[in-house]
Design a protein around this nucleic acid. Sequence first.
DNA 1: CAAACGTGGCT
DNA 2: TAGCCAAGTTT
Length: 389
Amino acid sequence: MLTISSRIHDNILNSTSNSKQHHDDEVYAVPEKDWVLKLLSWYDVNKRDLPWRRTKNPYAIWVSEVMLQQTRVETVIPYYERFMNQFPDLKTLAGAPEEPVLKAWEGLGYYSRVRNLQEAARQVMERFAGQVPPEPKAFRSLKGVGAYICGAVLSIAFQIREPAVDGNVCRVFARFFGWDDPIGSTVLLKKAWQASLDQLAWLPDERVPDWTQGLMELGALVCIPRSARCGECPLADGCTARAQGKVEMLPVRKPRKENQEVYRKALLLTDENGRVLLTQRPDKGLLANMWELPTFEQGFHSLEQVKYEPERSEQFRHVFSHLTWIVDVTPARIDLEKTNPLESRGRVAEESSQYGSDSGQRSWCDREALSRLPMNNLTLKILKKYGVL
DNA sequence: CAAACGTGGCT
DNA sequence: TAGCCAAGTTT
């Protein structure tokens, strides 16, 4: 049985004479639309079998889109499987404590994504009776749902004609139409959004999800940032950049700001039971609410109860998107001879709070706690290196 | 509008 | 090695 779109495609492929006369809004057999059908046909054959493509569940698709922000498919897959297993539906996510939710995201980065997602889940429970709203305006109003997520989830799950313009789509269009507006600019975003909408306007409902995903899939597999595989591209014929030999020059990129180096001193403080002292970061900003080694800006002089040798410190370098941490980690132990264990424990913790980079929660962590508390990759790396994890 | 916000893979 | 980059949103 032929789908509507394949009939259109056949129609186009078979029509050679009557196409030029259609300069109005007639959608069938207009030659300008040929590239759209070529893209859809290419997608039919070349689309990857990804976990979130096996469902129409809007929540599942939403989770995948949030994970895929600035993150590669191969990285996301195992996280997606675990997350959907642990939080199978909106209600479960909304009702969960934040800690296990952050832990499930551990290592993925951009942790505010999942904190926003959980907040949005709670908003859906309250404002929309637990159902993802199919109206763009309503869905877009949820925490962490920007223009892209809104278009992606609604077009894929509900066949709503709302464009989803991401980096891939901007790149594909910039090259195909020869646009030289800088990537990330409002101008390029609007042009791409309109170009996508122009096609959504006439495509049959059932092709709406394929249009959204096909555009991105082409950008991910063929029209890639460097060394584009134009030989495999279904749109190579009509591609402006290809014709002008400017494929590698588009899209135009702005120079990046160099990221600043920030120096920190951290203490890997263990007790006689092998527990380690961790502190929780503030609930806003970088690595919000995650746990890390107590970190001092002024050195360790005040910690008289602690046995440590500064010369044994080891330096770790951790690169974020906008800054680089250079951390001196000093292994240390509670000095039982100098202090009364019953009190010193509290005093050390007290001081680590006073001199640490934050004034948040602190805790002596055993294996169970370490498996439960969310930490960023630098902290995990340090704990593993010293055999604590 | 620019800056904040993580991480790992690839060249 | 060092820099670039990946299915963005918030402030």
